[in-house]
Structure formats: C-alpha cells, structure tokens
Simulated assay, not measured.
Amino acid sequence: MANKVPTNIITGFLGVGKTTAILELLKNKPEGENWAVLVNEFGEIGIDGAMMTDQGALIKEVPGGCMCCTAGVPMSVGINALLRQKPDRLLIEPTGLGHPKQVIATLTSSQYQPYVDLKATIGLLDPRNLSIEKYTQNQNFNDQLASADVIIGNKVDQCTVHDVDEFNDWVTNQTPSKVFSKLVQNGSIPIEVLDIERMYDGASSQIEPHHHAHAEQEPQFELPPGEKYIRKENKGQGYFSCGWLLGAEYSFDFDELFSMLSALTAERVKAVVNTNKGCYAFNVANGVVSVNELSLEGFESRLEVIDSQLMPWNDLESILLKLAGIEL
C-alpha cells in the first residue's frame, strides 16, 4: 500500500452510543471516500455490523468478547481483510467491555506500522456515569477513558447541570490532559476530530489474566441448513450475554417487539429485526428504546442481551420465538 490508512479507535463503555456515533460519522464522511469499520462485540451474535451495513461502509465483525484475545488473531483477520480493500479511513469499535490498550498495541506494532496511520483514540462518555460508582469503580470503564486522546461527552440532552459540571471537572483534572473534549448529543462527533494526532504511547501488549480466548476464526452467522434459529451465550468481566439469530423468513410484529424490549430490565439490548413494518434496528440503553429503520431485505433477524446478572434466557427465548411465530 502506497499510503497508510488513517485509523481511529472509538471506545467507550456499554450503552454510551459508540455505534450511533459511527453511524453519524458514516453519514457525514466526504463524498467519494470509502470507509471501513471493524466492529467488536461482547456477545456472540453480530448486531452492530448489521446496523452499519445500511450506510455502505466496508464492515467486518469480531464477536464473542474482546478482539485482542487469542493473541490478536480475530482482530488481525478482520483488519487484514479490510486493508486489502484499500479504504480511505478505518474506524475500529472495540466492545464496551473491551481493553483499548491492547488494540492500540496491535495497531502500533511492526506488523501494521507500514499500513496503518493510527490517529487519536476517541473515548465516548455518558456524563451521568461519572456520578455512579458502578461505572467509576469499573476497571474497563477507567481504562477506556485513560486510553483516549479525545473525550466526547455524549447524550448531553439527557444530562442535568450537575452531570455537565461533573464532566467538565473530570476533563479539567485529567493528567495528562486530553487533546480535545466536547459535549454532544446523538453521537455527533465533529468529523475533523478524526484527524487529530495520537498523543499517548503507553499501550500495554499484555492481556490481563482474566481475559479469555473466544473466536479463533472469522465469525460465521449463517444458520445451518434446516435450522430455524440459533442461540449463543458468552460471559466474562462480570457480564453475561445471550444472542439469537433467526431465519429471514420469520417476522416480528413491530409493536409487540417494542413492548417486549421496553419491559426488559437488561443493561444493554441490541437487535436488527424483520418486522411487519420493515427491517428495524432496536437499541436499548438506560431503559430507553431507540429505533431506526433500515433498508435491508431478506435479512436474518438477530438480537443480543447483555446484563451483569445471569438472566432467565430460556424464558426470554420462549417469548422471542412466540413473537416470531416459530413453533418448536
């Protein structure tokens, strides 16, 4: 490759709005440019990539935990596949439970230095979380923010004056100082932020002892012949996930599905689903359900639930299959 590909890591904890931010960036990218996105999810069923496919970007997914596991094999497979397509920019979204320092270490290694121009790491933060011990005492939450050159306080429209003050105080007290910070809503990262140079080199290449090896090859989400659906579970770092992939021939009643998702108490829910009103992306965070229509057709529906408590997956599955009209 004659030119290095400008690359940004966009990190942040569960529910902070990383996928929404990337979708906004894709909508506002320079006309004629071809962008690529590597998506990592804690769950075993890929959701974010399905949401982004509608924006015409090159997408690769690494499901099933942190992409740096198994000595970086899953991440390297995804990056290599995207770089071969010579994108004008590469965005990398680690899981909300991931460790960005290892991702930085991989991208700055001798393997990728000739091909990747790693720019500023962008950390998304919900200012409300700075007042909640559950987040401020979480090592991943702190690691993600410490690794970021740029801090974007997202969801400011849902924040109180106290939340905004906490964010501003937090940014002011950071050592070393952050290069740039801004409060936004709906994940509206200023596109010029992507070209800010990376400042911090303190990336560790060591994987923490509690890290697990997950996917050892490229993910395959297609249903086996004759199967109506598949279910996959994952756990680690104090969280549990369960995901379902359902055949494209099955459709949900939009209103019934919305009601079910609204009633779920899980910390994080994502879905891309065929409904009687078309294909929709559902995103649940902090008890709020957001919906976006997609132009996908003939797509396999998928849903992922993440929570810090082990949930009654069998009961949830029964409800989900009933809504989809799947008889067992």
Rank of each mutant, 00 (worst) to 15 (best):
D117N: 15
L145Y: 06
K119T: 04
E133V: 02
V164G: 00
A105S: 14
K134L: 09
D54Q: 15
P94I: 12
M75V: 05
Q139K: 10
I122R: 08
E133Y: 03
P94L: 12
K101C: 05
V156D: 04
V116D: 09
Q102M: 12
D54A: 15
V62W: 10
V116W: 09
G78Q: 02
V164L: 12
D149M: 02
P100T: 09
G64P: 12
L124Y: 04
V156S: 10
G96K: 13
Q158K: 09
W170A: 07
D54R: 14
D126V: 09
A57E: 10
H99S: 03
M51R: 14
T121K: 05
L124H: 06
P114N: 13
R128G: 00
L107H: 09
Q111S: 05
M67Q: 03
N140E: 07
L82K: 08
L118C: 06
N129T: 14
V73H: 02
R128E: 01
N80C: 04
V171A: 08
A50M: 13
L83H: 10
Q102I: 08
K134Q: 04
L58R: 12
M52T: 11
P87G: 10
N140R: 13
L107K: 03
Y135I: 07
I152G: 00
V150Q: 00
P63L: 12
L107G: 05
G123K: 08
K60Q: 15
K134T: 03
L91R: 14
N129D: 01
V161N: 11
C69E: 09
P74V: 06
V171I: 15
V171N: 06
D149I: 06
D143N: 08
L125A: 01
C66G: 06
P94M: 11
Y112V: 02
T172Q: 14
